[in-house]
Every structure is written in C-alpha cells, then in structure tokens.
Amino acid sequence: MADIEVFKLNNCDPEEIEDIILKIEKSFRLNFKQGDFKDVKTFGDLCDIVMDRIEGESVNSCTSQQAFYKIRDAIIGTCSIDRDSLTLDTELSFIFPRRNRIYKVRQFRDQLGIRVNILGIKNWLGWFITVCFILSFGLLFINWLYALIAIAASIGMYRFSYLFGKELKINTVRQLTELVATEHYRLSRRNSKRYNKKEVVDTIKRIFINDLAVAESALNRDSAF
C-alpha cells in the first residue's frame, strides 16, 4: 500500500501562515508587531513567541469546559431547551431548527457575546459560485465590460448566499465548544485575563489543523516552515 502523503508546515504558503498568525492574535487577544516572526524557523519558535506575548495569570482550569458553560447558558437563554437535556453530544440541528435557524443563531451569538460562524451554504452552491467566478475572468479576453459584470455578480451571489445560508458547518455542541475555545480562547474563559499555559500550544495546533489541514503528527517543536 502506498504511503499517504502528510500535509506538513513547509507545504504552507507565507500568506497562509500570515492568516494563521492573525487568527492566533484574535484568539489570544494579542497584538504582534511587524518583524516579530522574522526569525521563526519552526513551530516551536512560533509557539515560544506567542507564549512570551500572553499576559495574565496562568491557572489550571479548563477553557473548553468554561466555553461549554457559556454556550449552554446562551442556548438556554435563546432556545426552548432544558438545561439537563443539553449535552456535548446534542445535535445543533435540534437546537437550531431549519425553519428559523438564521434568526435563532443570531440570537444565540448575541447572547454568547462571541461572533462564531456556524452557518454556510450547500457545497454544490459554493462550487457553482466559485466556477462562475473563475469563468468570469475568462470573459476579460472577450469583453471586459461583461467580465466585470460577471465578476461583480459572482461576488454578489457569494455574499448573499453566505448571509442567508442555513447549512450547519458543524454538527454537535461538542464541535461548537471546540470551535469557540479555539477561535476565541480568551473570550471563552470566565475571566479573560486568565489563561491555562498548558493549553496554549494545543490551541495553536488546532488553529493550524482546522484552517490548513496540517497533520497533527507534523506539528512538533522541530517542524520547519
């Protein structure tokens, strides 16, 4: 059997790494300066810089657990869900019925106080809009005016579809908890001035895995960019 190719850090483009750094900034509420990462050569180097920039008291409490409590309270506050029946394995389709899903999700996000994006469009529609967008550039060689109209229409369809998309990107409260704790680490905690030092590296790993599909086995201290 042929070996399965593992997606590694050195497969990532510099622009992709920059996007990851922005997401790390957002999650840990940091503000990196230009040049902070100029000497970074490995995943361990990047984690060390993040650890050095994080301020606050390090405690041993679990951020995912605190994120779940916040999510549970927000769901109870906006949906007719009994506290005892809400678990990590509860399906989001049960909490947010399709008929009024967009409205309920917006209510939930307002109650939670964290802008988490869990809705999207059907995969086939996303691919259709993407193909239309790519083909629009081909019109530049035929008629630039029609091409600009087609490009604008594709962008408009994309924004409209995502604004009113009803498809759930994740399935359970467990996945929602992991998403919130990863993308909004500090806001997930009861006291945003505290953090768990033991969780920082794992959170950075999840950001790489979720956004770039980097294999977890390829994320160790010596993994080179």
Rank of each mutant, 00 (worst) to 15 (best):
D3C: 12
I4V: 11
I4A: 11
E5I: 11
F7A: 08
F7N: 14
L9D: 08
L9R: 02
N10D: 15
N10M: 04
D13P: 08
P14Y: 01
I20K: 04
I24M: 01
E25F: 09
S27P: 03
R29D: 01
N31K: 13
N31Y: 12
Q34R: 00
D36E: 12
F37A: 00
F37G: 05
F37M: 06
D39E: 15
D39T: 04
K41V: 07
K41H: 12
F43D: 02
L46Y: 00
V50Y: 02
D52R: 15
R53P: 04
I54Y: 04
G56D: 08
G56M: 05
E57G: 02
N60F: 05
S61D: 11
C62W: 09
Q65S: 15
Q65L: 15
A67I: 04
A67P: 02
F68G: 02
Y69G: 03
I71S: 12
A74H: 08
A74L: 08
C79Q: 12
S80T: 09
S80L: 11
D84F: 11
S85A: 03
L86H: 15
L86C: 05
L86D: 14
T87N: 08
L88F: 15
L88E: 10
D89C: 12
E91G: 10
F94S: 15
I95E: 05
I95Y: 02
P97K: 08
R98P: 00
I102Q: 01
I102Y: 02
I102W: 00
Y103W: 07
Q107C: 14
D110C: 11
Q111K: 13
I114S: 04
I114F: 13
R115H: 13
V116D: 02
I121Y: 01
W124D: 15
W124M: 09
L125S: 03
W127P: 01
V131C: 07
C132S: 10
C132T: 11
F133W: 12
S136T: 01
F137I: 12
G138P: 07
L139V: 03
L140D: 01
I142R: 02
I142N: 04
W144K: 11
Y146A: 10
A147E: 00
I149W: 03
A150W: 01
A152F: 14
A153T: 14
S154C: 04
S154I: 08
R159G: 08
S161F: 07
Y162Q: 07
Y162M: 05
L168P: 03
T172E: 09
V173L: 10
E178P: 03
V180D: 04
T182Q: 05
E183I: 10
H184V: 01
Y185I: 05
L187T: 02
S188G: 11
K193M: 06
Y195S: 13
V200N: 06
V200G: 04
V201D: 01
R206I: 05
R206M: 14
F208R: 09
I209Y: 05
I209S: 10
L212F: 09
E216Y: 07
S217M: 11
N220V: 07
D222M: 14
A224Y: 09
A224H: 09
